[in-house]
């Protein structure tokens, strides 16, 4: 008894038993599934929009420097564009700041 789920199609009014899609017009009748698919679609669109966004000037500067013909410029850019260097530098600055705030 508990396994029987009747769903009415919002488009054509057909009632189906234990089905997520309308047997007549093919529309989604399961509201939870519909919301889940909409959420997934929104997430995909958001990712697509983020990928299409143009990188800003700092990123472009480093990416150009990483392909520079001079090895020294490339090495310096690689060093300063490294996630580890950025994080340790900002972390050190914050540690220094906390040290002066607390003392």
């Amino acid at each position: 008894m508990a396994d029987k789920t009747y769903r009415t199609c919002q488009h054509c009014g057909t009632v189906d038993l234990n089905s997520d899609y309308c047997s007549r017009c093919g529309a989604i009748t399961n509201v939870l599934l519909k919301r889940k698919l909409e959420r997934e679609q929104r997430a995909i669109e958001k990712q697509r929009a983020a990928a299409l966004e143009r990188p800003h000037a700092i990123t472009l500067f480093f990416e150009n420097a990483l392909e520079h013909r001079n090895l020294v410029v490339r090495s310096v850019a690689w060093f300063f564009y490294s996630i580890w260097v950025i994080v340790i530098a900002i972390g050190s600055f914050l540690a220094w700041l906390f040290m002066y705030i607390v003392a």
Binding site: I58, I83, V87, G91, A95
Partner: peptide, 21 residues
């Protein structure tokens, strides 16, 4: 501190989804 660092790296690299290693 780690969230500030993550924000900074995301900004510098123009990548909103970036996670720190």
């Amino acid at each position: 501190v780690l969230k500030i660092c993550q924000y900074a790296v995301r900004y510098i690299r123009s990548d909103r989804q970036l996670l720190l290693p």
